[in-house]
């Protein structure tokens, strides 16, 4: 069953169409990798799912609820209800620098869900244990490496128990030797059947972990399919050209 349905999504900045009639579904437990050249609209598409970008037309449905239908958005309360089903991990982590690692994890459950402090504390400890940073609980983000920061950002998103986790180029800002630890955590989540949509340049990750790959270029979905299919037997010239460039 589709947990996210996107149809005919459109967005333009003036004359420039950044999203042209984007249509795709994501099933529960899917790990979808979105690949494509810079400026192809992948990030804009991903960000529109959590209402960080407004679209000009089309529909987005999340777990049966309409975020936007034929270009008309739901009420602000509805939007908030729908978007909090999704967690988001950013390229530049966006941790809160004035809060410790643990406070970063706990602020949203405390302020938004108003859960009890003991339950929140238990979950933050569990998650910090899981990402291997329990000893850094009281450190400020400034003390962490890029890879550690991104692991904290993933844990922060998980604290809200999202149904779907979105990643916007989660390893693009990291030194190459630090991408592994982040991809490892993401792989672990895939094995627990977390539904994930990952905008990435990591072809290895797309191949190994995703069960579907979407190739976007110039604001359109050119093709999508199982990674082995798409990587070994791309149907379109543009896909071939992109893969040749990035797999070199």
């Amino acid at each position: 069953m589709a947990i996210i349905e996107v149809s005919n999504l459109k967005k333009s900045y003036g004359q420039l169409d950044v999203l042209k009639q984007i249509t795709f579904d994501v099933d529960k437990n899917d790990v979808v990798a979105i690949i494509g050249p810079s400026g192809s609209g992948k990030s804009t598409m991903l960000r529109s799912l959590v209402h960080l970008e407004k679209v000009d037309g089309g529909s987005i449905t999340v777990a049966g609820d309409s975020l936007v239908k034929d270009g008309i958005y739901a009420s602000p309360q509805e939007i908030k209800k729908i978007t909090t089903k999704m967690g988001m991990v950013f390229q530049h982590f966006n941790l809160f620098p004035h809060l410790t690692v643990r406070e970063n994890l706990e602020i949203a459950p405390k302020m938004v869900k108003k859960e009890s402090a003991t339950i929140i504390r238990e979950r933050s400890s569990q998650l910090l244990e899981k990402i291997g940073l329990i000893n850094w609980a009281d450190a400020y983000p400034a003390k962490l490496s890029g890879g550690q920061k991104q692991r904290v950002a993933i844990a922060r998103a998980l604290m809200m128990n999202p149904d779907i986790l979105l990643f916007d180029e989660p390893t693009s800002a990291l030194d190459p030797e630090l991408t592994g630890e982040v991809l490892q955590v993401m792989k672990g989540l895939a094995e627990e059947h977390m539904t994930m949509i990952v905008v990435t340049h990591e072809m290895g990750f797309a191949k190994e972990v995703a069960n579907r790959v979407i190739f976007m270029d110039n604001g359109e979905i050119i093709e999508s399919g199982h990674p082995t299919e798409l990587f070994e037997n791309p149907q379109f010239e543009r896909t071939k050209a992109f893969l040749n460039r990035s797999l070199k």
Partner: peptide
């Protein structure tokens, strides 16, 4: 203050 701070807060539901 980076706009990513506002975005992270928004996505977390603050």
């Amino acid at each position: 203050i980076d706009k990513g701070q506002y975005e992270a807060a928004q996505v977390l539901g603050l």
